[in-house]
Nucleic acid binder design. Structure first.
Length: 569
DNA sequence: ACCGCTCGCGGTGCGGGCTTTTGAGCCCG
């Protein structure tokens, strides 16, 4: 019996109890027990007594013992007999929780989405205490939505929507300031919706403007403090706007940025001091409410540094406050080491990319068009690569305070060889090696390919090391522990590809690279000037892994970078 | 159901808002 199964069983028990309308504390006790097991790194055999873990007592330990001895949980079996499986999806319906579902089951014998629909249509549901006509209508509407209801949306789908809404809010003269909040601001891979905090004194105008300017499928709520809409895009996207006064901005932004666990911890800290935090301010013991100009002032009130949103998980951010100042911020970034031009599959010329990089205030960058193997991307032959050199040198001659290094994104071929000979690589300043083909090879073959690149003295960096696309494909499944060990051994950089499709390395792998002391570069892989903005996402994502600034290659000065890339010549 | 303060019992990481049932359940971070 493995630990994962036990954790899942405890969570299942909680779910079934919830559907029975059980005491919510009892339900959460089972969830807490599961979380306690999950949070402990030891395997079950290494724990002599599970009840020593905080959150596991007599009852939950009995379930664990049951599972260990018999492979089954008699408690779960009993629950499954009493609670119909068809009720499980009903918890997803907004407005229905365990208590209400239990009542529907007990009073009307409802056991599935179908029977709930029938009961609503027959007008049976409105007769129940706690339900009425409106509830019935709402349930019917939500049942219709249930099938095509999308779960969490990936960051790459939300990012352009956020950009568009930011442009709209920025253009509205009644809007004094605004920010995106929620899990998007914390740089999570997926979010359920998008939250915006908007400061305005002209609530009506802003509301009308928003409702008229956005492509709206459905207005969920449109009050004085909250506007909630579903946008009519390829997939429906929920967006919430919170309209607040200027002095409430900091606490509202903090509150709606979360995470929930972070907020709970903050409120505990406040409570211990006799204060109360809400989205409107910090209430003092005498009832007066303090407000703050910005989040930094709010955190400072609790003797905390400004905690970057990505760190707000409710865990380490309160213990490791002394190293927060060592983490990377967007203004620390001095270069972008991975981008494409019209020479391969990019949309802008070398000079246009160069000007855009200068406009971002960078000191240097690297042009890295694809190599010849990638025909679909118009990859460069050694001859064309040589021609490109002239264009880059001309740009550099005209811009003495900035430097474009000459590079390539070279394919690691399916047979394990590299796309350019060493003589070609030798002439380049910076060489990226990456895999774009034969993802389904065995892990041994993939690792053999990567090892060739690692052992080549002219290669500096491995780009998007796993090849994953968020919520779409898993990539080529390299042995990351081994890859990181090689990067350390051969002195290579691993990339955090900041394109929101990729975010590769992921947080877990970044943490491993960090622990091993392997340098990381945050790159946009821009194929368009507009893509250079992804650096912001990359930086916020890197924060989630607590990567210190000095381990991030593109925070280095041009001199430091040059010293590093020339070491093998 | 678990924990902690003390051996049975009260509180359960927070607080606000919305619905519509004018309480209690549900939802948000």
């Amino acid at each position: 019996m493995n630990k994962k199964t036990i954790i899942r069983t405890l969570e299942k028990i909680a779910l079934y109890m919830e559907l029975q309308g059980e005491n919510p504390f009892k339900v959460s006790a089972f969830r807490k027990a599961a979380a306690a097991l999950e949070g402990d790194e030891r395997s079950l055999s290494e724990m002599d007594d599970v009840t020593k873990l905080k959150g596991i007592g007599k009852g939950t330990a009995a379930v664990i013992e049951d599972l260990m001895l018999t492979g089954e949980s008699s408690l779960l079996k009993e629950l499954e007999e009493v609670v119909p499986k068809g009720l499980l999806p009903l918890l997803k319906l907004p407005g229905l929780g365990g208590k209400k579902i239990a009542k529907l089951h007990q009073e009307l014998g409802i056991d599935s989405a179908e029977s709930l629909k029938a009961a609503c249509e027959a007008g049976k549901v409105r007769e129940l205490a706690g339900f009425a006509v409106k509830t019935e209508e709402k349930i019917l509407k939500e049942l219709a939505n249930l099938a095509n209801r999308s779960e969490r949306l990936p960051i790459w789908q939300l990012e352009p929507v956020v950009l568009q809404i930011e442009a709209l809010l920025g253009s509205m003269k009644e809007v004094d300031r605004f920010s995106v909040a929620g899990s998007f601001r914390r740089a999570l891979e997926t979010s359920k919706d998008i939250d915006f905090i908007v400061v305005t004194e002209a609530v009506e105008e802003v509301r009308e403007n928003l409702l008229n300017s956005l492509a709206i499928q459905e207005v969920v709520a449109a009050g004085d403090t909250k506007i909630s809409v579903i946008l009519d895009l390829d997939e429906p996207v929920s967006v919430d706007f919170r309209l607040v006064k200027d002095n409430e901005y900091a606490t509202a932004l903090h509150h709606f940025t979360g995470s929930k666990d972070h907020n709970v911890r903050m409120r505990q800290i406040a409570k211990a001091r006799g204060e109360k935090i809400s989205e409107y301010g910090v209430e003092q013991e005498d009832g007066t409410v303090l407000t703050f100009q910005d989040e930094a002032a709010f955190f400072a009130h609790f003797d905390l540094p400004w905690i970057p949103p990505s760190l707000r998980t409710g865990t380490a951010e309160f213990d490791k406050t002394n190293i927060i100042q060592n983490l990377v911020r967007l203004e620390d970034i001095k270069a972008d080491l991975h981008m494409h031009t019209t020479w391969s599959d990019g949309a802008y010329s070398v000079a246009e990319m160069g000007e855009a990089l200068l406009a971002r205030g960078y000191q240097y960058s690297v042009i890295t068009d694809h190599s010849q193997f990638l025909k679909v991307a118009n990859g460069l032959t050694p001859e064309r690569l040589e021609k490109q050199r002239g264009e880059i040198e001309a740009f550099n001659a005209a811009h003495p305070d900035f430097h474009l290094f000459k590079g390539t994104e070279m394919d690691i071929l399916p047979d394990g060889s590299l796309d350019f000979e060493d003589q070609v690589l030798k002439e380049l300043d910076f060489v990226i090696a990456s895999i774009h083909s034969s993802f389904t090879q065995s892990q041994d073959k993939i690792m053999a390919r990567l090892l060739t690149a690692m052992q080549n003295p002219y290669v500096h960096m491995i780009a998007h090391p796993t090849g994953r696309i968020i919520e779409d494909r898993d990539g080529y499944n390299p042995d990351m522990k081994q890859l990181i060990a090689w990067a350390k051994e051969y002195g290579k950089i691993l990339e955090l590809n900041a394109n929101p499709y990729r975010l590769d390395l992921c947080v877990e792998h970044l943490e491993m690279a960090c622990a091993a002391g392997v340098p990381v570069a945050i790159n946009t892989d821009a194929h368009d000037i507009a893509h250079l903005r992804f650096m912001d996402i990359g930086v916020r994502y890197a924060n989630r892994a607590w990567l210190p600034k000095d381990m991030i290659v593109n925070t280095w000065t041009r001199e430091q970078f040059e010293a590093f890339i020339q070491r093998n010549k």
